[in-house]
């Protein structure tokens, strides 16, 4: 081994990382070379002295000062967030506004079709959806099938044959107390004749088959001289009862509401 090769291996030899072969060659060389042996001793002594340098203690105020700086740093961090908002407040406001607009648009169904479509989608999802979704969807469906006419509260008629639906006609009959006292029995008799059954009590809401709507209105006006009769036609069902498939006519009604004005 040459001295130049021994010099390259010196550091690794001191660190004990040479393989057995190189270690043996290196030891053989320094046994025979006083200059390299001396280099080894000097280097080894230097490293031993380095290890003995040891640590010095932290300055007394180190932790206190660090604590103060950390608090400042934390404040700066917070401030920089507020500063960002301050600097770009127009942008932040625009983003918030956009979020509100998009949220509202989504809420009124601009992105999901018409409300009716939403309701029908809701119905189809209801069949397979989760309980949470069902609740939300059913609420949406109820909202979209609410009555469009403010003149009549479309509750189920007291002599009814079921709940109101969008294909029913709604007839508001507005009469005075005197008119009611005078004609109520006749009105009920007429309804009984249409229905073919006796009405035991005297409620203010009745149902008749939808096809008798016109006949009922004519009777009010011509026989009883009651002219304040308002009809809210069905949303979508055909006026002609006969045009409907067989067996469905019974589902479509005219709901009569008697309103007594004080």
């Amino acid at each position: 081994m040459k001295c130049s090769d021994a010099e390259k291996l010196l550091s690794a030899y001191i660190d004990g990382t040479l393989n057995d072969d190189d270690k043996a060659k290196f030891e053989e060389h320094i046994d025979n070379c006083s200059a390299c042996r001396r280099e080894y001793h000097i280097m080894n002594a230097m490293i031993v002295s380095c290890r003995k340098l040891g640590d010095i203690d932290l300055p007394e105020n180190f932790r206190h000062d660090l604590h103060e700086r950390l608090i400042k740093e934390k404040r700066l961090k917070k401030r920089s967030i507020y500063r960002f908002i301050g600097k770009y407040k127009a942008l932040v406001a625009a983003c918030l506004m956009l979020a509100v607009v998009l949220g509202t648009a989504a809420g009124i169904g601009l992105f999901g079709g018409s409300p009716k479509r939403s309701a029908s989608t809701a119905q189809s999802q209801k069949a397979s959806g989760s309980a949470k979704d069902e609740k939300m969807i059913s609420n949406d469906a109820k909202l979209f099938s609410a009555p469009s006419s403010p003149a009549l509260d479309r509750k189920s008629p007291e002599n009814g044959t079921g709940t109101a639906n969008s294909s029913d006609n709604f007839v508001n009959v507005n009469i005075s107390k005197a008119e009611y006292d005078k004609y109520s029995k006749d009105i009920i008799s007429f309804i009984e004749s249409i229905e073919g059954q006796k009405i035991s009590s005297t409620p203010l809401q009745y149902t008749i088959p939808k096809k008798f709507t016109s006949e009922f209105i004519s009777k009010m006006k011509d026989s009883f001289k009651i002219y304040d009769v308002m009809v809210t036609p069905a949303d979508s069902a055909p006026e002609n009862d006969d045009a409907r498939p067989k067996g469905e006519s019974a589902e479509y009604k005219a709901i009569i509401q008697i309103n007594i004005n004080e």
């Binding site: 001396r38 001793h41 002594a45 031993v48 002295s49 003995k52 340098l53």
Partner: peptide
Amino acid sequence: VADRDKLPDEAYESKELSEAIR
């Protein structure tokens, strides 16, 4: 100054040598 012939490790472990290394 270390003895060139003896080179005892102790000669390099003095406070002064540590300071010199620093």
